[in-house]
Every structure is written in C-alpha cells, then in structure tokens.
Nucleic acid binder design. Structure first.
Lengths: 193, 193
DNA sequence: GGAATATACGGAACGATGTTCCGTTTGCCA
DNA sequence: TGGCAAACGGAACATCGTTCCGTATATTCC
C-alpha cells in the first residue's frame, strides 16, 4: 500500500522523476476539474489545469476510467471499509445496510456524472465499473448476508444488481427528485413483510 | 386533434407540400435510426436515411427532443390511456399500478438511450422531459391515488418522482442487471407493511 | 563532468458529431 | 406564367476524444 516502486512480480524500473511529479499534478488537476465540471470534464481542461499537454494525460491514464478510479480510489476504499464497522455498531443488520447505502449515495451524489459513467455500458468505462464492483460488492454482500440471515430481507438479493440500481437512481437530477428517498424506497422493497 | 392547419389563435398559413412530405419522411427515418442505433443516432445518419440535408432536420425539429417526442408520441399516449383501463380491470389498485409500470418499463426498455435522455438534466432535453411528464404523470398519479385510497401504499408518494426513478432504473444496462426486477423492488417499497 | 540512451513531453493533426448559415431551388398564388 | 416567400442542401464552424511523432530531458555509464 505504501510502496511505490514495485510492480507485480517483475521489478518495474521505477519511473522518471518528472513523470511521477506529473502524475501527482494530474491527479490534483483532475480532482479540481471533476469538482467544477463533473467527471466528464474535457481532457483539454484537465491538461490545462495541470499545465501539461493532452498526450501526458493519456500516457498516465489511458482511459478516463483510469483517471476517475485514481481520483476516487481512497473514498471508495473508505466506503468499503465502513461496512463491517457499521454492522458492528448498528442495532440491526438492516439498519447497517441502510446506513451504508446512505454513505454510498452521499458519495455518488457529490460527484456529477459519476453515477452516469458507472452505469454506462461503454467499453471505455469497463475499468471503472470493475473497480467499483470489486471493492463495493463484497462490502454490500456482507451486509446483505447478515440481514438475510437475520430474516429481515429476502435472501435472494444480488449485491451487484442492487448497487447498480442504486447507482442508476443517483444518476440524473431533476427539480423535485430526491435520489435518497428513492433509494430508501428500493431498500424498503427488500424487506420481508 | 385531427386538424392540421391551425396554429394557436392566429391562423398558421399551412405548410408547403414538400415540407409536409419531408416531415413525414423524417419521422420514419428517425424511427428507423432510433431502432438501429438508439435515440442518440447521429443527425447525419437520420438525414441520410431520409435523403435530406441536415438543415432540414433542424428546421422541422429544432432539438433532438422534438424529434424524439414526435417519434414516440403515439406510444406515450397509448401508455397514458392504458392507466384507467388497467384500474378498471385489475383486482386491486396496486395490481393496476404494477401492471401499468410494467408497461412503461417495457416501453423504455425497448428504446436504447431513451431513459438516459429522459433523465438528462441537459437543457436540450427539457422538452422531452416535459412531454413525458405532462402525459404520464397524471396517469400514474391516478393509479397512485387509487392505491393510496385503498390503503395499499403510503399516501405521500409523488408520481413525478416515482416515474423519474423508474426511468433511472431503466437507464443503463449490465450483464446481471434486470431493470424490471429493480423496478419491482421499488414499487414493493411503496407498500404499507 | 560529459555524452548516450531511453523515457517522457507537448501539441498539432485527425475523425466524429452537433449546429449554424446562406446561396439555391421550388411550391404556391395571383 | 411570373414573382416571391418558403424550404432545401450541405459547406463551414466549433467542440471533443484520441493518436502520433519530433523534441526535450532525466538517468546512466564512462
């Protein structure tokens, strides 16, 4: 986690100093651009913010998904790690599930275009899709299992599908639309009656 | 509804024959293009299919939303009109609601990109948004009211928000994602327990 | 310290797409 | 039939993602 000059197995020769510097600059620039214009911010804008050419972006982050993942990696990880904690501190598994999904919704709601990108079937976003799924599905499945075992929800619920649905509900904004409430309805629909 | 040469109040002079012909051709071409490539089909493709220049498209349908509305107008109307029928023939209001929403989902699911466009907050799609809302919200509200009155669902449900959520759930496709099931969960969440 | 070399950089260039604009064509009416 | 307003076509412009290659520079080796 802390190491930075080791690749997978075969030793990666270590990148040039300017390359590492640019990568960090680019990450900061992208974060700023995403905040200002959403995750669809034009490549040229990000490059300009970082003071580099567009080629440099593509060299470091071949697809937009790679850049998005790099920018939000820590927040996704934090979200995933919150699941067991919530399960331990909440009254019931269903309460923990609800709280955790709220966390996820809060995360998505503050990133314009992220939910849309997440649910795009474009091949370019497959990496993004995969990253989120790899990290968040196990966390969600854990909560789902606990709630199912406690007899609170129907046992056949698929974590991947649920997260995808939540992502969809968070995509798009409208005057009288509250994604949180709709997600709440969805989670309520999970409950056994 | 059947008249075609009257504007609002001041008499519209009636369009030229070639203009009327092109409009019909364009509608057919757009329908075909939407079917083949989704509602985001390139303007040039539609123009080519119709054998007209791109300028002609913009003259008849200033925004893509106008074109989409024109293409799907009849289906939307049919969907709206199905609501009272379903209410009369279904066992319970909630059953009618479920059936009607299934209808809506089926409609959306067969139009690639429509749900996405519907929930886009882009100003260009405001017309589309408005059209769907104007026609479908009353139909849905009717069913919602009936179900609420029968004590089947929570009475504070907003039709516009619900439809928007259903649209969102239908946007985006993934290997293990079934929009119908998720919509079912959402509607189940409406029920009083 | 001073080349040699691989690495990284910058930005021009290309293709796709939406949108506008204006010279040309054509239906319509007198 | 002549004239004009309506409509047309498609070139032209703007934006954006993506690629590519000549140039610059960090690193290494002597």
């Amino acid at each position: 986690m802390a190491g930075s000059d080791r690749g997978s197995g075969t030793s990666t020769p270590r990148k040039r100093a300017d390359a590492r510097r640019n990568e960090a600059t680019l990450l900061a620039a992208a974060a700023a651009a995403f905040l200002a214009a959403g995750v669809d911010a034009p490549v040229r804008d990000i490059a300009a913010r970082a003071g580099v050419g567009v080629g440099t972006i593509y060299r470091h982050f071949p697809t937009r998904a790679d850049l998005i993942v790099a920018v939000y990696r820590h927040q996704v990880q934090a979200c995933a790690e919150a699941a067991p904690t919530l399960l331990a501190t909440s009254g019931t598994p269903h309460a923990a599930l609800t709280a955790w999904i709220d966390l996820f919704v809060d995360f998505l709601a503050t990133k314009h275009g992220l939910a849309e990108a997440l649910n795009s079937d474009s091949a370019a976003f497959e990496t993004l899709h995969g990253y989120f799924l790899d990290h968040l599905v196990p966390a969600c499945a854990h909560l789902l299992d606990a709630a199912a075992e406690a007899g609170e929800i129907r046992p056949d619920t698929n974590a991947e599908e649920l997260l995808f649905a939540v992502g969809n509900l968070c995509a798009g904004r409208a005057p009288h639309y509250d994604a949180r409430r709709m997600v709440g309805l969805l989670v309520a629909g999970l409950r056994l009656r």
